[in-house]
Design a protein around this nucleic acid. Sequence first.
DNA 1: ATTTTGAGAAACCAAATGGTTGCGTATATT
DNA 2: AATATACGCAACCATTTGGTTTCTCAAAAT
Lengths: 125, 125
Amino acid sequence: MVAYIYATERLRNQPTFMKRDIFQAIADPTRRAILVLIATQALTPNALADQFDITRQAVSKHIKILNECELLKQEKVGREIYYELKIDKMKEVDQWLEQFRKIWENRFDQLDDLLTKLKSENDES
Amino acid sequence: MVAYIYATERLRNQPTFMKRDIFQAIADPTRRAILVLIATQALTPNALADQFDITRQAVSKHIKILNECELLKQEKVGREIYYELKIDKMKEVDQWLEQFRKIWENRFDQLDDLLTKLKSENDES
DNA sequence: ATTTTGAGAAACCAAATGGTTGCGTATATT
DNA sequence: AATATACGCAACCATTTGGTTTCTCAAAAT
């Protein structure tokens, strides 16, 4: 049973108490848009809600989810709360992707070798 | 209304008829494990189901979802169907990540510059 | 001191998700 | 020809999700 791949992935990416992981966080298009918006600047829930056709409360729920995934920094200024992306957390996705990147880069090299070989054979004739 | 960021992302990543996108596909841990398993070798639904504590039909539903995202190649051999990952499709996630990678690489460079500056100031004294 | 504003929490709802069992069909095996 | 196997599809079910409205509380503004 090589279900351990599955098991270890779970364990590696999320402590037992944490229900959500970053992959669930980025599954929703609204949340992806939020992440882009707060990647370079801190924004309040109201400012974010202005960008979408949903209520502030709905945005608040998205923020809560992102927070549970430890994707956010927050700073309280008066009664406003500014949220900003913890950019380093996004590297987790990058790391997961690494195993696939290895494969496609490897295949690209193989294709490259093949083309070089074909070219040299052609030059000889 | 800068909700166009949101809108264009949807449009870019998925034709109007397609409900799912790759981000939804990788949101589920079982599906992520399946993708890893079929990244380097084609496998049948039954072979995949052996790796998990769920029924073959459940795996089949995951395969269906991955298929809708155009993540799979399939080859029928007799009554068996072998599924393999279309690795290129994974590049879509990589592309989306690119905008964040730019940010963290930029910040790393800034940190690097700062350290270099501090070091040279130290050398002068 | 009163009113307005920003934000989280709770209750609620329809739709989607991830699983199950059961069935039909095509291909192999005997 | 009869049986067994691999698969997809449909119906069903409990839980989760993404949204809403309503409420409460703290901080600003009047």
